[in-house]
């Protein structure tokens, strides 16, 4: 997911009886499907976990602009260029909505940005993989956005109001992203020999990294249990991964492409696919900053931030001068 391995601060989920009145009222409201709004009382752990989660999600959108941005200037037609540009622009918008949601919890966007740039905060592992051919634009939309939607749709019902509202807006925009990706894959899979080869190669490279997006199994994680009690995590990682595989395998078959997993098999009794786990050592390597593009991504973000400083300062200084002149004139 765009938010991976978020550590909640709880030591285990408290029962209602163990809670002080404030916390109990808070938890009962969540249990009843109510929303928590910025000015409501909330446990410190809830606030901090949400900042981490929403911040990481926002960072993922922003860093996620880079692998697709890599192809905007090489898009093969004017329409494809416009579509891709609109999609990457949406990601900037999603990042913006999410930063704003995080800001309601008392942290500034600048602070979150500094924490991303210093490496203190993370973004999704998936964006540390390179986009090497035009088919990757298809694979990213189809697989990466497809996996993200699995998580984002249920998050529209998350307990924190500003986060839920951001997710509603994001999901509405996100649906076109996955479809445009699949549309590219269809063109490639039904195209020339070279295009088919690119499509298969893209699936080969993005399949396991997409499965990793859901994070390692969290069945026994106290953090996940607490987040689920708070309704800021709606499903277990395994549950979503299974759902993703079950949805995606038939789509790959439709494209005439082969999922790179020799153990992939339909299980009639279970009504779902059996599949191989991704290489979790690779996942942890990527999280440690050893992804194929980790260094490039952070350099690109840092460069944009540093080179933009004079612009942000310049426009702010002008606004202040303007205000001062207006005051002096009154």
């Amino acid at each position: 997911m765009y938010a991976q391995m978020i550590k909640s601060t709880g030591k285990g989920v408290k029962s209602l009886d163990e809670m002080e009145p404030d916390e109990r009222a808070f938890q009962e409201r969540i249990n009843a499907g109510g929303k928590i709004e910025p000015k409501d009382w909330m446990p410190d752990g809830y606030r901090k976990t949400l900042i981490r989660q929403i911040g990481q999600h926002a960072h993922s959108e922003i860093v996620g602009q880079l692998p697709e941005g890599n192809w905007i200037t090489r898009a093969p037609t004017l329409e494809r260029k416009a579509i891709l540009l609109a999609k990457v622009q949406d990601e900037a918008g999603h990042g913006l909505y999410l930063y704003c949601a995080a800001e309601t919890l008392g942290v500034s966007r600048d602070q979150l940005t500094r924490d991303l740039l210093s490496g203190k905060m993370k973004y999704s592992s998936i964006f540390n993989y390179p986009t090497l051919t035009w088919a990757d634009m298809g694979a990213v939309g189809w697989l990466v956005d497809g996996a993200a939607i699995m998580n984002q749709v249920p998050l529209q019902r998350t307990s924190y109001g500003p986060y839920a509202r951001a997710m509603v807006r994001i999901c509405k925009e996100e649906s076109f992203h996955q479809r445009q990706g699949f549309d590219i894959m269809m063109k490639m899979a039904n195209g020339t020999e070279a295009q088919r080869k690119m499509a298969q190669d893209a699936l080969n490279r993005f399949w396991y990294p997409s499965l990793m997006m859901f994070g390692p199994s969290d069945e026994n994680s106290v953090h996940s249990a607490q987040s689920m009690a708070w309704k800021i995590k709606m499903n277990s990682n395994d549950e979503l991964r299974q759902k993703f595989v079950d949805q995606t395998v038939p789509q790959a078959e439709y494209l005439g492409l082969t999922v790179p997993d020799e153990h992939l098999k339909w299980n009639e009794d279970r009504g779902s696919y059996e599949f191989s786990e991704p290489d979790w050592d690779e996942f942890f390597d990527v999280l440690q900053g050893n992804g194929p593009c980790s260094v490039d991504r952070m350099e690109a973000r840092n460069k944009a931030w540093d080179e933009g400083r004079w612009v942000r300062e310049g426009l702010l200084a002008h606004a202040e001068k303007k205000r001062a002149r207006k005051m002096a004139a009154e």
């Binding site: 391995m5 550590k7 981490r52 309601t104 966007r109 602070q111 905060m121 993370k122 942000r312 702010l316």
Partner: peptide, 28 residues
């Protein structure tokens, strides 16, 4: 880079919602 489990927001001095920082544009 540290692992995603290691960081925490405890060290962050959070600004009140909407209050601009020195170089950050105000929130609208």
């Amino acid at each position: 880079m540290s692992s995603p489990e290691s960081g925490s927001y405890d060290a962050t001095e959070a600004a009140p919602h909407g209050k601009p920082r020195a170089t950050e544009w105000p929130l609208w």
